[in-house]
């Protein structure tokens, strides 16, 4: 059997819980091999095409969601991969982690109304610089969110930088694709649902594309992102 063309690493921190969903969703294509990598490892044991930091409650959300990930051995390997230009996506708690380890700007605060929100939301693709978004054809995706700490926050200066550098990847929108306060479920500054680093290879987003990817899911919009990075 020949080696699969693409290896996608899925990081499993203590308390991560979406790793199997991500493995199933990202591993659908025959040419893709997904591998779970414990956060206790300090490398990915070989080249990887892309890295997924899944959702969950890593380290029990102690201190702040994602904050403890800074102490994990795999985090150094994440820094190196980000520097090398490897496509990286952080989903939900993965987004919180990427912000807390400073691979992405900003931070995720408790939702504006303090409640856990679990529902589908519209997402407007604002920038396709991330390899996870480069091949996404529709401008609006329908993907669920499930979070209590999803309110993206950054200073006014950082927001201006994000806009100037085309780092705002995804914004919350309504069914018609309109961005508004009413369509913003958690009070995120700038209606932001996802941002990239300056280089564009690291993407963080609160919604779960892996929950709209399989035949038994209510929709398959998440597959646009999966197919984009696996192309």
């Amino acid at each position: 059997m020949s080696d699969p063309a693409l290896r996608i690493a899925i990081i499993d921190f203590h308390g991560t819980l979406c790793e199997r969903d991500c493995a199933a969703a990202f591993g659908q294509a025959a040419h893709v091999e997904t591998m779970l990598v414990s956060s206790e490892k300090d490398s990915f044991s070989g080249p990887v095409h892309a890295i997924v930091v899944p959702g969950g409650f890593s380290y029990g959300d102690y201190i702040r969601p994602g904050a403890m990930a800074r102490t994990a051995p795999i985090t150094r390997a994440l820094y190196a991969a980000a520097d090398a230009g490897t496509p990286i996506i952080g989903i939900c708690n993965g987004f919180q982690i990427l912000c807390e380890i400073r691979l992405l700007p900003g931070v995720l605060l408790k939702n504006r109304d303090g409640r856990f929100i679990c529902r589908e939301t519209g997402l407007r693709v604002q920038s396709r610089r991330s390899p996870f978004l480069a091949g996404v054809k529709p401008d609006v995706l329908r993907v669920p969110i499930a979070h209590k700490y999803g309110q993206y926050y950054c200073s006014a200066e950082t927001l201006a930088e994000l806009q100037a550098n085309d780092q705002i990847a995804l914004c919350y929108c309504d069914d018609e694709g309109q961005i508004s306060d009413a369509a913003n479920p958690n009070g995120s500054v700038g209606h932001i649902a996802g941002v990239t680093n300056k280089a564009g290879n690291v993407l963080g987003m609160m919604p779960h594309p892996e929950r709209r990817a399989m035949p038994w899911h209510a929709g398959k919009d998440g597959n646009w992102m999966i197919e984009s990075v696996c192309a």
Binding site: A67, M68, R70, T71, E100, P105, V107, C154, S155, T158
Partner: peptide
Amino acid sequence: GDVLANPEI
């Protein structure tokens, strides 16, 4: 500065 606090907030 690195873990207990996040300078953004």
